[in-house]
């Protein structure tokens, strides 16, 4: 009896893998980075332009855009898509720039070990505990409430300044 059960598992396991394989390619994701230029016109209006980030130096503002699409045949479960983005080395997050439609955005100050809303983040500085500022953030997380139907796409973005 026990032997028959084990044999049954080894016979059916490859079939389960074959069924699961299409899901491997379910979401395709692409990252893009552009340089943000703020141009002040004579009338005082400030125009923001996104240009190629061919050449970056300290002080430049960069926008990272992460686009993703459900390229499979099955819908992605609601409340399941989580995108986590460590801030690139030698950059500082620019407050208020994290975007993600339908997503709850949280931040980390411990290199991605934990995430929380800004008001709940604290850091140790010179032996004292203080509220974290955007400069302290080391990673950003987007948790999406909606799912993603086959063929549907979305994106998140955030800006940083190169130190």
């Amino acid at each position: 009896m026990q032997r028959k059960s084990s044999l049954s598992f080894w016979l059916t396991a490859p079939l389960l893998w074959l069924v699961a394989l299409p899901a491997l390619a379910q979401i395709a994701l692409e990252s893009q980075v552009q340089k943000v230029e703020h141009i002040e016109h004579d009338d005082g209006q400030v125009e923001t332009r996104l240009v190629d980030a061919d050449s970056v130096v300290p002080g430049d503002e960069l926008r990272y855009t992460i686009s993703f699409r459900n390229e499979g045949d099955e819908p992605i479960d609601p409340n399941s898509i989580v995108i986590t983005d460590p801030l690139p080395r030698a950059t500082r997050y620019i407050d208020g720039t994290a975007f993600g439609a339908g997503a709850r955005v949280t931040y980390s100050v411990d290199r991605g070990q934990s995430f929380a809303d800004p008001e709940a983040l604290y850091v140790e500085s010179n032996g004292t505990r203080r509220q974290a500022t955007p400069e302290d953030y080391t990673a950003i997380r987007w948790e999406f409430e909606p799912g993603l139907e086959p063929g549907e796409a979305s994106h998140v973005s955030f800006n940083v300044q190169l130190r």
Binding site: I27, D77, S80, T84, D85, A90, R92, R111
Partner: peptide, 30 residues
């Protein structure tokens, strides 16, 4: 993420490669 993050808070020296990685998770039928 601990593997991905290589460090923050330093000035960006000339010649440094600025890498960026993204982690994604989702569920299909749980």
């Amino acid at each position: 993420l601990l593997v991905i993050v290589t460090g923050v808070g330093q000035a960006a020296p000339a010649g440094q490669t600025l890498r960026h990685d993204t982690a994604l998770s989702y569920r299909i039928d749980g």
